[in-house]
Design a protein around this nucleic acid. Sequence first.
DNA 1: TCAACAACTTAGAACGATTCTAAAATTGAG
DNA 2: CTCAATTTTAGAATCGTTCTAAGTTGTTGA
Lengths: 147, 147
Amino acid sequence: MMSSVTQDRPYSQTLTRLREAGLRPTRQRLALGRLLFDGGDRHVTAEALHEEAQAAGVSVSLATVYNTLHQFTEAQLLREVVVDSARTYFDTNVSDHHHFFLENSGSLMDIDGDKIAVTGLPQAPEGTDVARVDVIVRLHGAPRQAS
Amino acid sequence: MMSSVTQDRPYSQTLTRLREAGLRPTRQRLALGRLLFDGGDRHVTAEALHEEAQAAGVSVSLATVYNTLHQFTEAQLLREVVVDSARTYFDTNVSDHHHFFLENSGSLMDIDGDKIAVTGLPQAPEGTDVARVDVIVRLHGAPRQAS
DNA sequence: TCAACAACTTAGAACGATTCTAAAATTGAG
DNA sequence: CTCAATTTTAGAATCGTTCTAAGTTGTTGA
Ligand SMILES: [Mn+2]
Ligand SMILES: [Mn+2]
Ligand SMILES: [Zn+2]
Ligand SMILES: [Zn+2]
């Protein structure tokens, strides 16, 4: 059955992605790639990914985590999400989409790009191109409802 | 004529705003308030406002610029705009609106809140409130057009 | 008017995220 | 294997921002 290709070889998939991006499949990049891309879409900070790697027994420096996240971003395997001026989030979902941002916990949730429509946008100023439209829905924890 | 009230006394207006916010009208706050609120809407960084104050001959420390920007924000005289993880922008336009962000120059331009509509937003997750919806239109300088 | 106290300002240290440096380790070609 | 190019890394450096603690200023009420 075809599941052996789509599910059973995440390692090989990361290997392939790195090769296609022209990045040498080093131990560090393979490990970080697997943490990032095996399983569903993720939003991580460098610090969080570093801790996760440590916890998984992967020895990798914070500098390498930063280098790798930037290289993956250049290679379009990741994109950056700017929601908080204190930290940079990297997103494994590189398709067109938007975000809920829970300001309390600092967590991000995807909103499908084709669920949302932004209408009435004025024309971009003379001499500029629209590179991207970001919609960020900032959420606060709701007060506990009176039951 | 009534223009004497609405136009000729920006100093007094800032004075009044500070009083209403419960902030002592110190030399520094008055000067920064006038730089910020006299004239149209503005988007400033702490560093930029500090330089502007120096250039205007106002002696004020960077710490005070930061303190003042945060106090004005708490008092709803300003709001923060998150577009760049490297710096914090403060916005004198506190009405509901969105932004063009010119990534090349780091400059912001307002988009009226009632020009834009965001439709199809999924319901906020259980237990959360929508605090704000931000639309950021990221712009790049366009290639020089072939003439 | 002015003492007294709270509020405010400030220099400089501290902080935290990120980037840089330059030396050691690893990778892949041949 | 050998060797050059690439990658990793510890630790220093950077940069925006916040903190600390000491001096200054604004307000108030006798
Ligand atoms: Mn970056
Ligand atoms: Mn802040
Ligand atoms: Zn996302
Ligand atoms: Zn604005």
